[in-house]
Design a protein around this nucleic acid. Sequence first.
DNA 1: GCTCCGTTTTGGATCGATCCAAAAAGTGTC
DNA 2: GACACTTTTTGGATCGATCCAAAACGGAGC
Lengths: 348, 348
Amino acid sequence: MVSTSRTRVTLKDIAAHAGVSRSTVSLVMQESELVAGATRKRVQEAAAALGYVYNRGAATLRSSRTATVGVVVHDIANPFFGALMAGIDETLQAADYIPFLASSGDSLDRQARFLARMREHRVDALLLCPAEETPASSIEAIADWGMPCIEVMRHVGQSPLGDYVGADLRTGVINAVRHLVTQGHRRITLLAGIADHSADRERLAGYRYAMHEAGLDGLSSVDRGPLTRCAGRERTLALLRGATAPTALICHNDLVALGALLALSHLGLRAGQDCAVVGVDDIEEAALAEPALSSIATHPRAIGRNAAELAMKRIGHPEGERQRIVLEAPLVIRASSRISSAVAQEST
Amino acid sequence: MVSTSRTRVTLKDIAAHAGVSRSTVSLVMQESELVAGATRKRVQEAAAALGYVYNRGAATLRSSRTATVGVVVHDIANPFFGALMAGIDETLQAADYIPFLASSGDSLDRQARFLARMREHRVDALLLCPAEETPASSIEAIADWGMPCIEVMRHVGQSPLGDYVGADLRTGVINAVRHLVTQGHRRITLLAGIADHSADRERLAGYRYAMHEAGLDGLSSVDRGPLTRCAGRERTLALLRGATAPTALICHNDLVALGALLALSHLGLRAGQDCAVVGVDDIEEAALAEPALSSIATHPRAIGRNAAELAMKRIGHPEGERQRIVLEAPLVIRASSRISSAVAQEST
DNA sequence: GCTCCGTTTTGGATCGATCCAAAAAGTGTC
DNA sequence: GACACTTTTTGGATCGATCCAAAACGGAGC
């Protein structure tokens, strides 16, 4: 039963109704162990009877915990970040936290505005996929504010300054190169992005390491360009028409790789047979592409979960040691990188 | 220059520094026209000098405006909702509002918990894609709380109770049927979802209307099942192996339609030539599928923008007349539904 | 110099919770 | 029944802004 009174119900009203003090009601609302069972029950019933709504704003003013976090991604329309966000949301819901969300569109200005707003709202932590070109000073400033910040997927600077959760793309790419070399490939091109950020550098480092390991330094070739599906198609067409066409492609992400598959089919070539293609992310679409796309699985949902869990931990222990969680990014081999695609078994 | 003092800067500190009263500083923070230009400038400089951070929690306590809204979607990992959210975010950023986000996973319980939290946080408005089976009473309850609520894409009950923004799927499906009939199809099957919600009913209504119009009532056939890509593939295989196989499919969304394309290619059939396929949503992938997929374009980003704009308007005029914004959902015809796919021009 | 009137500025009360030190109630012992 | 000790409960101060009615200011007109 809910009160129909127009004036708002406060702790004071509940206190009067239950015959206790405001302080006691407050303790009940905070689920404190201090208050006796019978009293707790009486207060809860009074709250329900009056249709009480907890006022988090008022609580925040005094206690400075908000049970909210801020999440910044580059583009929530990108399925990768959708999945990441789903993982974050999942963990936060379990912990009774609520996320503010902003898409930065990789714009420093929008990112800065959102961060300022988060500070005004006094979020308990930030989960940040830093926009390109974010200076280290921004991350330091956030730390100065006393606000825990978890960098996700990308980090600024050569190595993460504070907490970080990402995928081991370096090892992933190394495995991809080794796999391709085993299949007899030597001309392996990396289709990278234009921007120079940590996630990009990691792929590159893995690529160079593995090519060197295989004695293929001389054949290393990195193609830089935009990272959309269309761009993937165009870039692949250009590469294959070149004088020294590659026989295998490692693409920055699955969208680019799917574009590459389109290019191959356009040229009447068969992916896997005529030119191997490996993507990154292992989005849902990869397994269902024709032919099925090999991909380095980054498990965005798991990364989101881990990042949110780390945030919860950091809120509890602000001064604890910083953590760097790097999740495995296993290579999922499918038809697009197998010479004998007749053997259609999937390896993980 | 930023103060290094450990204690937080408040309006009182700024007032002292600028030689005015708290009230005046408050007015400056609210960008009020009342305060004289020179004073405003002095206050702003003082605020900057002291490194002031506006405390929205405190402001909310008194004024009950929060500059936040709550957004509920079913599954943020679904690219459709990602795009929707991107549209919402875009509009909100322009208006200096910030969204809380939750994925309900179509669970009434999770939805209810999130809504309760939003009430505690006193968001200024809600953008809600109601979970399946949401009772009308929930929407009414939100209205009772005095919280503006915009239903997005789906609405509870036979027609929207309050503000609503969606796509005109009924007309979209009618156009699809007419298009298919023009191409000579008669056995046109609708691949629908299992749940009975407004967006589903609209598709069905359009389908029945158009089939009747074409004198094909007797051939109407609605297949109900899950809405994933895999399910789309399996359902299509089952249909085509049936005694009276359809020659055209209208799929609940593009994921199902892409599954249908996989099924056709698996059977060695050519989409467009042997069996026409039309999807709904026109996601990015549709245009790049092989063959390119015809689709009813729902423009999620535009819907998101409109919904957020309506929310902003409703916050300003809570008692204004309720609006129902239904955006056009034009049929985009591509190769997957054209008999003569040689003529590869795209119509919008 | 004084009144009138529009523009600026102000102090005190207020929003609704939490914090804290101290009071009250309850338990067990001798 | 007094004592020490633990478990519960309490009132007042407090967080940092906004609201509002009233005061101060400043220029025009007489």
